[in-house]
Every structure is written in C-alpha cells, then in structure tokens.
C-alpha cells in the first residue's frame, strides 16, 4: 500500500456540483493509467483532487505512503506530483523559458533540466525568449509538458493532451511520451481519444457521472464493455 498513489473513496465538488461520488484508484510506480470517460464525468476533478487544486470532502489520497488529502497544490508539487492542465494554461506574460524555469522552481533533483528539455523539444530552445502564448498549439503543449517535467515529478497528470491539436502534432507528442514515462515516472493520462489512451497505458479507469464504471487492464475488457462503461449505459 505504501508505494505509489492510492485514492480511496473520494468525494469532490466542482463549485456546488458534486463531481465525484466515491472514486478509488491505485497506481504503482512507473505505470501509466488511462483515465477515460465522457465530458463531465469527473476526470478533471479527479486529477485536481490528486494534485491539490480541489480538496476532497470525503475519502483519502495517499502518495508514497503519506496522506496528502487536501494538501494545497503549492505543496504537492514538492512531493513530486505535476499537472499538465487541460487547455495548457501557460503563463501569458512569461516567456517560454520563464514558464519552464517556474516549473522547476521547487528545485527537485532529477533528469529534467532546461538542457534535457530542449533536447527533447528542440523547437522550444529556438523560441525560448518568445511569449509562451505566441507559439502554435502543439508547441504550447510542449511548453506545458516541459513545465510539468521541470519539477522532476514522480507522477505526471496529463489532462487532455491532444485537445485542440492537429492530428500530426498529436502523433508527435505521443511519440515522445515513452521517453518521458520511461524514466520510471508514473502518469495518469486523460484523453478523449480512447484508443490512443488505452494504447499508451498499462491500466485504465473509466468514469461515468462521478463514479468508476469500469477499471482494469486494457486487454481484459472488450471494446463493447469499455464503450458501455464510457457512456454509462
């Protein structure tokens, strides 16, 4: 129980709306979990409850054996949890490089630095002093990923990586994903494209209306079962 991430029966609210009705999951170190579900199923709220942007009203989140339920976002990052938020949400008055530096501000040791990131995404090196939001969508997504990696996390939460990006760009980014997760890092991947998400993950969890409708390994369930769980039917 002590290793990795364990979410037990959490209930969380999005504003006044109860978005999660007792959700549980477990993720061992080095694994990738695909989190799927229709719009409004509670995927983003689950990620936010893990990284501390939403404080669950009930249940427990433990990380590396430590209870982090309700711990604010400014502290979870120091424990090695990073979020690549939906819509990227780059700091618009910061340059590309400043966005990255800010990501590394907590000063955790690890493989990622400006240099290794620029090796991974050379285009960011070229554009490092431009305002982050002046880049193309795909490049902005690289900055958002880089910003999260700069904290040398042990767990990265990717929220809607491919949203609003061209297919070719999505393909590029997913091609880099093994290099990122290959460093022994765990990841939770929220993705509209179920096939792509399942293809990149060793386990999956499907949410419907704030509850777990199906979970397991991608190969264990038929497409029809997953599809039924997705739509909550």
């Amino acid at each position: 129980m002590s290793e990795g991430l364990h979410v037990q029966d959490i209930e969380s609210f999005y504003g006044d709306f109860k978005a999660l009705h007792g959700v549980s999951l477990s993720l061992e170190p080095g694994r990738v979990l695909a989190l799927i579900g229709a719009n409004g199923a509670g995927k983003s709220t689950l990620l936010k409850s893990i990284c501390g942007l939403v404080s669950p009203k009930a249940g427990r989140v433990t990380w590396k054996g430590r209870d982090i339920t309700g711990l604010p976002g400014s502290q979870t990052v120091a424990l090695g949890i990073a979020l690549v938020p939906e819509g990227r949400r780059l700091f618009k008055s910061l340059s590309v490089e400043e966005n990255l530096i800010l990501g590394g501000q907590v000063g955790r040791k690890g493989p990622w630095s400006l240099k290794t990131l620029y090796d991974l995404f050379p285009i960011l090196n070229e554009k490092r002093s431009q305002p982050a939001t002046s880049l193309s969508g795909g490049q902005q997504q690289m900055v958002a990923i880089g910003r999260a990696l700069m904290s040398n996390p042990d767990l990265v939460l990717f929220d809607e990586l491919s949203l609003g990006l061209a297919p070719i760009v999505i393909k590029d980014i997913y091609a880099q994903l093994p290099k990122i997760t290959g460093q022994g890092m765990s990841a939770i991947l929220v993705e509209q494209d179920v096939t792509r998400a399942l293809g990149s993950a060793s386990q999956f969890l499907c949410l419907a209306e704030g509850r777990v409708s199906l979970a397991g390994r991608p190969g264990d369930h038929s497409r029809d079962a997953i599809s039924a769980a997705y739509f909550g039917t």
């Binding site: 990284c51 501390g52 942007l53 604010p72 976002g73 400014s74 502290q75 979870t76 990052v77 120091a78 990073a82 979020l83 938020p85 949400r89 700091f91 800010l102 990501g103 501000q105 907590v106 910003r147 904290s151």
Partner: peptide
Amino acid sequence: EIAELMGL
C-alpha cells in the same frame, strides 16, 4: 491556480 502548482 496553476501558479500554485509551481509551488507558489
């Protein structure tokens, strides 16, 4: 909100 996740 996102700045919080940078430890701020």
